[in-house]
Structure formats: structure tokens, C-alpha cells
């Protein structure tokens, strides 16, 4: 292959990459476009890609007091879930990785298999449990349920990551007389940071969009989270598509932003985790 044709090939591939990503992002672009359309500008048939007179008015409408309340609730619930799920997941994954006995493997398989249950079939019994524990309408109800859902996957991801760490490091620490807890805190924890970030992002993305539990456990308006809250805005008789899309953009922004900042770790963490999964 000549140098020139290789360069041309690379340019071709680069534009292919660019084009495909654009194609994937087209719906997102359209969401933003509709969110900028003034309420007075009617929808054209067939649809147009960009409004004639873009405006931020929809965003001003969408950013109402309820939205702010729901937003704060979502943040609290998501962050707490991430913190608990990742910590518990790390401890459990560490145990699974470093210790081999049959009972543990069986438990692990059972914990992972829990993902197979359709939520809508077990939501009423779960609701009863929350009620008898007096947890309805609390952050705790959601955090506990979300930890139960995300913890199995968190363990799976973290375990795959921890298995890549060379056991010699820990052995050296043990020879130095450090107990298992010390070893974990001083040696394992600092080394597993990329895996922790990757898992945290995964848990955050899942938690941020959960709908059915949030709908069932929370009735009070002041405790609602965003995915349920967006339905408040739709209601039976609907708001304009512009406002709906503006709200959608606002809901998506925080996760997208966090994700953009952390994506390097995320990809790195998964890189390690996935291979040895």
C-alpha cells in the first residue's frame, strides 16, 4: 500500500466514523432543536430540522419550582445509592475474589440471577415490605431498592476488576503483618480507583432513570424524582412538545455532564473489568 492511498483510507475511515456518530446523535440533536422551538411556531409537515426562531422560552417554563425539587431528590437518591452500592459492592467483590469456597459461588450466582425477575410482577409485595418497614415516601425506600437492583451488577464489575490486581502485592502486605482490613484499605482500595469510577457511573446512570419503584413508593410531591416528575408535566392533556423536550434536555444534562468528565475512567475501568469478567 502506498503512503498516499493509506492516508486516503484513513481519511475515509475518519469521515465514516464521524458520519456514523452523527447519525446516532441525530435524535438527540432533534430533541434539542424541538426544545428551542417557540410555542407559537407550528410544527411543519414534513418536519424541519431547525426552528425558524430558536428561543430559550421552553427552558424557562421547564425550570419551574417543582423541577428543582425533583432534581434535588434525584441527586440525593442517586448519590446515596452510588455511595452505598459501590462500597458494599467493593467489599463483597473483594471477598469473592480472594476467597474460594463453594457456598460463596452459589450465593454469588443467586445474587446475580435476581436480575431475572420482572419488576412489575413483584412490585406489590415489595411495596408491602416498604410499608411494613414504614419507609414509604422516604429517600430510604428508593435507596434500598436501588441498591438491591444495582449491587449485583456492581459486584460483577468490581470483581472482574479486582481479579486483575496482582495478588503478590497483598501477600507482601500480609507478610509485613498487616491484617486483611489493613491490606484492603491500604493496598486494594487505592489500586481499584478506575474500577470504582466505572462502577459508580454505571450505578448512577441506572439509578437516575429508574421509574417503577419511584412511582410506587413515593406519593408525596415533595419527594418525587425526575423520571416520575416528567410525567407531571405531561399530564393527561399534555404540554407542548417544545416544553417536553426542554424538560428532557434538562433531565439528561447532569448525567451527560458527569459522564463526559468521567468517561475516561469509565472506559478504562470497563476495559479491565470486561476482559476478565
Amino acid at each position: 500500500m502506498t503512503r498516499g492511498s493509506r492516508a486516503a483510507g484513513r481519511a475515509g475511515l475518519a469521515s465514516l466514523q464521524f458520519g456514523l456518530v452523527l447519525f446516532v446523535l441525530l435524535p438527540v440533536f432533534w430533541m434539542v432543536s424541538v426544545s428551542l422551538k417557540p410555542a407559537t411556531e407550528p410544527f411543519a409537515i414534513p418536519a424541519r430540522l431547525w426552528p425558524d426562531h430558536p428561543t430559550l422560552a421552553n427552558f424557562l417554563h421547564a425550570f419551574r419550582p417543582e423541577f428543582r425539587t425533583y432534581f434535588i431528590n434525584s441527586v440525593v437518591v442517586s448519590l446515596a445509592t452510588v455511595a452505598i452500592s459501590v462500597s458494599l459492592g467493593l467489599l463483597a467483590a473483594y471477598s469473592f475474589t480472594r476467597t474460594q469456597f463453594r457456598l460463596l459461588s452459589v450465593l454469588m450466582a443467586l445474587v446475580l440471577a435476581a436480575q431475572m425477575f420482572p419488576e412489575s410482577a413483584i412490585i406489590i409485595p415489595i411495596y408491602r415490605i416498604m410499608r411494613s418497614a414504614d419507609l414509604l415516601n422516604t429517600y430510604a425506600s428508593l435507596i434500598i431498592a436501588y441498591v438491591a437492583v444495582t449491587l449485583p451488577v456492581a459486584i460483577w464489575m468490581l470483581r472482574a476488576f479486582l481479579m486483575r490486581l496482582p495478588p503478590t502485592l497483598e501477600e507482601a502486605a500480609e507478610i509485613d503483618g498487616a491484617g486483611p482490613l489493613r491490606t484492603f484499605l491500604d493496598i486494594v482500595l487505592p489500586l481499584s480507583r478506575p474500577g470504582v469510577v466505572a462502577t459508580a457511573v454505571f450505578v448512577l446512570v441506572v439509578t437516575w432513570q429508574e421509574f417503577l419503584f419511584a412511582l410506587s413508593f413515593i406519593s408525596s410531591k415533595s419527594m418525587r424524582t425526575l423520571p416520575v416528575g416528567i410525567n407531571d408535566f405531561i399530564g393527561q392533556y399534555g404540554i407542548s412538545y417544545g416544553e417536553l423536550m426542554a424538560t428532557s434536555v434538562l433531565i439528561s444534562l447532569p448525567v451527560v455532564a458527569i459522564f463526559m468528565v468521567l468517561q475516561r475512567y469509565f472506559v478504562a475501568g470497563l476495559t479491565v473489568g470486561a476482559v476478565k469478567g
Partner: peptide
């Protein structure tokens, strides 16, 4: 991006 977008959205 699509994966990060909330499911309902």
C-alpha cells in the same frame, strides 16, 4: 450519549 439518556426520555 444514547445510553446515558434517561429511559423515559
Amino acid at each position: 450519549l444514547p445510553w446515558v439518556l434517561p429511559g423515559v426520555v
